[in-house]
Design a protein around this nucleic acid. Structure first.
Length: 443
DNA sequence: GGGGATGATTAGTC
DNA sequence: GACTAATCATCCCC
C-alpha cells in the first residue's frame, strides 16, 4: 500500500500516463519529480505494462506464467487502482447513455396478441376461451364442433412449439450469461470490472436474446393469424337454412306480407324456432348459422324484384296459413260453444302459425282473385272475425285447387315500398302489438 | 360443370 | 342502427 501511495503521488497525472501507455508510447516523466528513485519506479510500471501488452503474443503456458507473475507483482495494486480511476471516468458516460431503455412497443404488441390468442399466458386461459367463444358463435352443429376442436388442436400445437422454443432461448440465454459473468469475474482479477459493469453486460446479452425472442414471437403470431384466417374462411362457408326453418320464415313473411319487418322480439322468436341467430353477433366474424335479419333482407328484395316468381310460393303459404287459421278458429269456436257462447275465440295458436288478420284477409282476397282494396287496420274486431270465418270456408275449399289462382302482390306500393311500413326500423304489424309474433286471429 | 338459389357482405341512405 | 340494393361466394340440383 505504501508503494501504491507513493506512485500515485509521484505520478500526479495518472490518467495521462495510463493513456500514454495504452497508446503504446513510453511513459512521460512525472511532473516536477525527477531523480533516480523516480526512474526506478517508472521502469517498474513500464515493465508491467509492457508485459500486459505482449501477453497475448505469448503461448498459453507462457502467458499463464506471466499472468501469475503479474498478479504477484508488487506494483500490481498501484496499476490496478490507476485502471480503476480510468474505468470510473469512462464508465459514467457509458452508463448514462445505456440505462433505462423504454419497453419496445412492437414487443408489447406481440406479447399482447399472443396473450389474447391464448398462445402465451396460462394454459386454461384465452386459448380455450377463444375457442369456446368461436364455438358459441358457431352454434351447436356436429361439423362445427369438429372445426372447433381442429382449431383448438392446431392452436395447442402452435402453443407447444412456441413454449419449447422459448424455453430453448431462455436456457441458451442463461447459459451464455453465466458464461460471460464467469469470464468477467475471472478477468476482474487482472482488470477492474465493477458489478454494475457485469450487470450492464448481462443487460446487453438479454437485449440480444430478446431480439431473437421477438422474431420467435413474430413467427408465432403469423402462424396464429394464418390458422385463424383459414379457420374463419371455413366458417364463412354458406350454410343453407334447414327446410323447416325456411318454412317457418316463409310462413311469417307471407303472413305479414303487408309489412314484412319483424321486430326484434319477433326476430328472436323466429331465430329460436328456426335454431338460427338474429344477426351477426360473433366478434370473430361471420357465424355459420344464417340469420333472420339477413333472410328477411334478402327475401324482401327478391320478392320485390320478382313478384311473379314468388306468386306460387305466396299462394302456398297463404293457403297453409289459412288452413292453420281455420283449424285454430274452428277449435276456438268449438271451445267457445262448449264453454261460453259469449266469449268467442278465447284460444290462441301459441305461436305465429296464424297469420296477421289483415294479411290473412289480403291473402284470402288474393286467393279469390280479388285485389286488395284498402288498409287492413280499420276493420273492427268483429269484422275481422267474420273475415276469418269466411276465410276458413274458402281456405278449406281451396286447399286442393289452389294452383293456378293468381296471388295478387299486395303490400307493395307503386314506389316499391311496403304499404304500411313507414319506418322500417320501428315497424309494428298493423293489427298486432309491437314485436308480437303470435297470431292476432283471436282479435 | 353450368346455372339458379340463397346466405353473407358491403356501400350508401335515412 | 336498420334498411336497400348490388354483389360475392357457395350450395345444390340438373
Amino acid at each position: 500500500m505504501e508503494d501504491q501511495a507513493r506512485i500515485m503521488q509521484s505520478l500526479g497525472g495518472v490518467t495521462l500516463a495510463a493513456h500514454s501507455v495504452q497508446g503504446g508510447m513510453a511513459l512521460p516523466p512525472p511532473h516536477g519529480h525527477e531523480g533516480t528513485d523516480g526512474d526506478g519506479r517508472k521502469q517498474d510500471i513500464g515493465d508491467i505494462l509492457h508485459q500486459i501488452m505482449t501477453i497475448t503474443d505469448q503461448s498459453l503456458d507462457e502467458a499463464q506464467a506471466k499472468k501469475h507473475g503479474l498478479n504477484c507483482h508488487r506494483m500490481k495494486p498501484a496499476l490496478f487502482s490507476v485502471l480503476c480511476e480510468i474505468k470510473e471516468k469512462t464508465g459514467l458516460s457509458i452508463r448514462g447513455a445505456q440505462e433505462d431503455d423504454p419497453p419496445d412497443p412492437q414487443l408489447m404488441r406481440l406479447d399482447n396478441m399472443l396473450l389474447a390468442e391464448g398462445v402465451s399466458g396460462p394454459e386454461k386461459g384465452s386459448a380455450s376461451a377463444a375457442a369456446a367463444a368461436a364455438a358459441a358463435a358457431v352454434g351447436g352443429g356436429a361439423d362445427n364442433s369438429i372445426e372447433h376442436s381442429d382449431y383448438r388442436a392446431k392452436l395447442t400445437q402452435i402453443r407447444q412449439i412456441y413454449h419449447t422454443e422459448l424455453e430453448k432461448y431462455e436456457q441458451a440465454c442463461n447459459e451464455f450469461t453465466t458464461h460471460v459473468m464467469n469470464l468477467l469475474r475471472e478477468q476482474s482479477r487482472t482488470r477492474p470490472i465493477s458489478p454494475k459493469e457485469i450487470e450492464r453486460m448481462v443487460g446487453i446479452i438479454h437485449r440480444k436474446f430478446s431480439s431473437i425472442q421477438m422474431q420467435l414471437k413474430q413467427s408465432t403470431c403469423e402462424a396464429v393469424m394464418i390458422l385463424r384466417s383459414r379457420f374463419l374462411d371455413a366458417r364463412r362457408k354458406r350454410r343453407n337454412f334447414s327446410k323447416q326453418a325456411t318454412e317457418i320464415l316463409n310462413e311469417y313473411f307471407y303472413s305479414h306480407l303487408s309489412n314484412p319487418y319483424p321486430s326484434e322480439e319477433a326476430k328472436e322468436e323466429l331465430a329460436k324456432k328456426c335454431g338460427i341467430t338474429v344477426s351477426q353477433v360473433s366478434s370473430i366474424g361471420s357465424t355459420l348459422t344464417p340469420t333472420v335479419s339477413n333472410w328477411f333482407g334478402n327475401k324482401r328484395i327478391r320478392y320485390k324484384k320478382n313478384i311473379g316468381k314468388f306468386q306460387e310460393e305466396a299462394n302456398l303459404y297463404a293457403a297453409k296459413t289459412a288452413v292453420n287459421a281455420a283449424h285454430a278458429v274452428a277449435a276456438a269456436v268449438q271451445n267457445s260453444q262448449a264453454n261460453s257462447p259469449t266469449t268467442p275465440n278465447s284460444g290462441s295458436s301459441g305461436s305465429f302459425n296464424l297469420p296477421n288478420a289483415g294479411d290473412m284477409f289480403m291473402s284470402m282476397q288474393s286467393l279469390n282473385g280479388a285485389s286488395y282494396q284498402g288498409a287492413q287496420v280499420g276493420g273492427s274486431v268483429q269484422s275481422q272475425g267474420d273475415t276469418i270465418r269466411h276465410a276458413i270456408s274458402q281456405a278449406v275449399g281451396y286447399s286442393d285447387g289452389l294452383r293456378g289462382h293468381l296471388y295478387s302482390p299486395h303490400g307493395l306500393n307503386v314506389n316499391g315500398g311496403w304499404h304500411d311500413a313507414p319506418t322500417p326500423s320501428s315497424v309494428t304489424s298493423p293489427t298486432e302489438g309491437a314485436g308480437s309474433v303470435h297470431s292476432d286471429t283471436s282479435n
